[in-house]
């Protein structure tokens, strides 16, 4: 069909439609979240073969392809592996809320862990938000059993 100049082109909107989910966190993740909720402490899981400590804990060490079941304590302090200061806001698709910019976004290797945890940092100071900087987790007063029980990390 020839393109009609100025022709009205319609759209169909999804409106308020959404897909609800109820994901199981599983034993490994639940143990991690409960440790935060009840004791404000972190745990990881250690691979019996390569010795890597994974945070958050999961069942399988991908590299060794073995099941892990040794939970080990991990510090609530650690160092920044990589970081950014976000100046451009966006709306979180699950909450519909926009986080005020700028904010720090960091990957923290907690002492005792071999993997990093991505989270927010309460500073957006480019002089201080640096790779290798030491940070500590700040927990929400009332924990609900979610990764957001960590309110954010803070520079030590």
């Amino acid at each position: 069909m020839e393109k009609k100049k100025g022709m009205e082109l319609l759209t169909i909107s999804s409106g308020d439609m959404f897909q609800p989910y109820r994901w199981s966190v599983g034993k490994y993740g639940s143990k991690f979240l409960l440790e935060i909720k009840e004791n404000k402490r972190f745990i990881g899981v250690k691979c019996p073969k390569c010795g890597r400590v994974y945070v958050p804990p999961r069942k399988v060490c991908g590299r060794c392809y073995v099941a892990m079941d040794e939970f080990v304590p991990v510090s609530d302090e650690g160092e920044i592996v990589v970081c950014a200061i976000i100046e451009f806001g966006f709306v979180d698709p699950s909450t519909g809320v926009q986080r005020p910019v700028p904010y720090g976004y960091v990957f923290v290797k907690l002492d005792g862990a071999d993997t990093a945890l991505p989270h927010f940092l309460d500073s957006a100071d480019p002089e201080k938000v640096k790779v290798g900087a030491r940070v500590k987790a700040v927990f929400e007063e009332e924990c609900k059993g979610s990764i957001m029980d960590i309110k954010h990390f803070t520079l030590i």
Binding site: G26, K59, A67
Partner: peptide, 11 residues
């Protein structure tokens, strides 16, 4: 309904 995660049932 299973408690195990996607990764756990795949494993």
């Amino acid at each position: 309904s299973k408690e195990d995660t996607f990764a756990e049932i795949v494993f």
